[in-house]
Write a protein that binds this DNA or RNA. Structure first.
Lengths: 319, 319
DNA sequence: ACCTATCATGAGTTTTTCTCAGCAGTCTCG
DNA sequence: CGAGACTGCTGAGAAAAACTCATGATAGGT
């Protein structure tokens, strides 16, 4: 048997806290400020704890109130999302997708137009976000995660491995410090993603070379920025081969050493378990899977051979 | 502005679903079955969706109802836990702890009496559980997790690394297939934890030996069982040195090769972020940290040398 | 100093929720 | 087979909860 507080009072509490005022909360709930005051009083009496500290003109949450609000907000939000999901037509043609930023800008965005051609009726609402999300707390339908694929309580579908290779601007190769073997990197700036400092170290291991302390190093917060920095001739970064295929084939980036580091991480398409997919969701999922298995439009593989050591300097002519 | 369904009706809905009957739900809520019926009807009208399918004598959840129930239950549970946490005296001397099974039985249990001596007033309520838990959904105060320490939104405190070494019964060494170097393991049964099949392979890598296909293999579901199986002379298992120190020093288990595999995983003490700890919680946390740093009571380190290759057969005399 | 905004409180009103009574269907057991 | 025990639905009236209004108090802005 459950022991629950007066639930309607919780709704009033949450609105009051959010608005920072009983009067404002009353307006939102279409009742008078007096009604709000009564409700809060009831709740406080039930709990035996003051949730707001009153200073005759303004109200402010007490520490207990703040703590309680977090959970109440979370719970009400879940109810709201669940109710909306239930009420919303089963056959909407809108799909809300949250995508790992790098995958979004370098893979999905360039292919969006192809999806829209195939499914002009389906509206994709895309947002970028790192890390996991709680499907019970957001109205997001599906997501593209970056990681090792080990997540609980969600349906996971493998999309694509992430293999890192060093990339740099073609100009870098024209400088006085050539890149003939991995050890030559000591004369260059290594660009790190600050949360994944170990990647360069691992790469040197794979390249059967000792880890070198680079001339300079540059730390940036995301792989998007490191790739951009490499392109701006700021040094050498580690980037995924597939995701940078456009820059490589256009000659904006070159691969001085075609030695890939297997990060053991990948991109995955995920969605809620036990949830029947709408037609639109199914269409997106199937398109994504088919598209990712299709041969690369930009033909990296063939181009790449022109950018590996030996012929690398030749590719610099374009830029 | 929020768009919430009638919240009291949700409480009734949840109780009805849980009890599988309006009458039973009524009893639980101290109202008549009629009141329950009215409430459910109101909710269904609000949603525009039937939650129960009525068959004139019994009610059953519709698919939509089932789906909705999951979220409603989750949300109400969170409210209940939060309310209870708020209401409960700030200075209770009860601490609820969820502990990884292997750590519980092999480390915490043997030391519990020491804690009780030091803090006779504090009552520990301990349960074993694998994987993560949601502190917003359970009244657990703290937990000991096994993993890589990368968890979001919780306070994490490192306790102890997990280093795996092969262990077996001393009798095994007396058999006709001695264990002189890792390759000799091909003549024995290797015991695996079924969810962590790769550990043996990694160990052979560390032991600079090729991965061998063992004579037999045995898969068990937890490291508790694999250790027990090794002790029962069923083969060779990988076990954590610290956690099996008692068995090793008592001679029930021996370490044929003192080559540890660093699993990169460890035990961590975790609790909610931003939550002020009670005195009892602080006491347990500090005791645990101090205890884990204290020199091992069973003096494994000194004993161990007697159980490594060369002198290993000698340790078999005890058992 | 005065006007306005905000909140508390208690009495009275409105709205919501609950009970009761009656009806109907179904399962059980003698 | 049929009476009795359950279970659920419904509508009307009763009970409870929620809301409004009036009043008072206090603080901030002008």
């Amino acid at each position: 048997m459950r022991q629950l507080p007066p639930l309607n009072a919780l709704r009033t509490f949450e609105a009051s806290a959010r608005n920072g005022s009983f009067a404002a909360a009353g307006k939102e709930l279409f009742v008078t400020a007096s009604a709000v005051s009564h409700q809060i009083k009831t709740l406080e009496e039930y709990l035996g704890i003051k949730l707001f500290s009153r200073s005759k003109r303004t109200v402010e949450l007490t520490p207990s109130g703040k703590q309680y609000l977090v959970s109440v907000k979370h719970a009400l939000n879940e109810i709201e999302v669940a109710t909306h999901r239930l009420t919303a037509s089963k056959e909407t043609n809108v799909v809300q997708i949250s995508v790992a930023p790098n995958f979004l800008t370098r893979w999905l965005m360039p292919r969006m137009s192809r999806f829209r051609e195939m499914f002009p009726d389906i509206e994709l609402r895309i947002s970028a976000s790192v890390g996991l999300l709680d499907f019970n707390q957001s109205s997001t339908d599906m997501a593209v995660y970056y990681g090792n694929g080990e997540w609980d309580d969600i349906e996971v579908h493998f999309l694509q491995k992430v293999m890192l290779v060093p990339v740099c601007s073609p100009k870098l190769l024209e400088g006085k410090h050539p890149l003939r073997d991995p050890g030559d990197l000591r004369n260059h700036t290594l660009i790190y993603v600050s949360t994944r400092m170990w990647e360069w170290e691992n790469w040197f291991q794979v390249a059967s070379s000792e880890y070198i302390t680079p001339k300079d190093s540059l730390q940036l917060s995301s792989s998007q920025l490191t790739t951009a920095a490499a392109q701006e001739n700021l040094g050498v970064a580690l980037a995924d081969l597939t995701l940078t295929s456009r820059e490589i084939s256009s000659g904006n980036l070159v691969v001085p050493f075609n030695i890939p580091l297997d990060t053991r991480k990948a991109f995955y398409l995920v969605h809620q378990k036990h949830r029947p997919l709408t037609t639109a969701m199914k269409a997106f999922k199937e398109w994504l899977i088919a598209e990712i298995q299709a041969p690369d439009v930009y033909g990296v593989e063939s181009e790449l051979s022109a950018n590996v050591p030996g012929t690398a300097s030749g590719s610099g002519q374009r830029q």
